[in-house]
Write a protein that binds this DNA or RNA. Sequence first.
DNA 1: CTCCAGGGTTTGC
DNA 2: GCAAACCATGGA
Length: 264
Amino acid sequence: MIVSINHNFNLNQIKDSGQAFHITSDNNNVFTFIYLDHVLRIKHLSDDIYEVSVSEYEWNHIWVDYFDLNTDYSYASHLQTGNEFLDNAIIFGNGIRILKQDPFEIFVSYIISQQSNIPRIHSIVNKLCKDHGKELEPGIYAFPSHQDLYQLSENDWRNDYHLGYRARYLKNFIDNYTDKIYDYHNKDNNELFKFAKSFLGIGDKIASCIMLFAYHRLNFVPKDVWIKRVIETKFNGINLFDCYPGIEGILQQYVYYYARHFNI
DNA sequence: CTCCAGGGTTTGC
DNA sequence: GCAAACCATGGA
């Protein structure tokens, strides 16, 4: 099916923006996204025109929301702040969306991400999907469900995925998980943030990733080493994100993508 | 060899 | 409340 996506949508930027660890692309520029048991292949044809592998119903009911296409990113993507670095980052990454990813996948993925790096996180998450996720199509695996991961012991996490001290955090999260995490879509920021941090191994930074990437709280800014370095060396120590209420998390993602792309 | 990576917990003051 | 020690792993 052919769909039209008007503005602020770039598949390469979305894939490399570091928010999702389960996106692939082939050398024919076909991108594959997976959300729960749904698989989307999408290819940019020209201008605003994209070819997608799903029905109109699935596109409208799953993927429009996943890509946050009902949110207008023009305020964030046209913002001029007067800070040269931030303004360049906004222009460079203006096709990034903040994806609405599955909370369980985000909790697990970002506990794994702790004190690691993007290529290694990709590799661990892909192995986890292949080992324990449902095979949706030949060679394409869903992120494992809670049920799928319940069998793993702390030593399985440690030995099979080389997670070291994080193995304890993952075992603890799987043990204490309930599907209540899906009720938190309706709760306010404070309650949700506290809930996320109540799990062992989840502090301010990972909880902020959960707020932004799983619950779409666009005013949260995960402060990893890249963002901290930019605030220190490019923003003169001032958190410029906080000057733009409501889009802090979007601006943060532009900056993260830009800083990492140019290794700043 | 050291340094770094989408950090957090524990301990000590 | 805040710093420091400590925690595993793999790539550069």
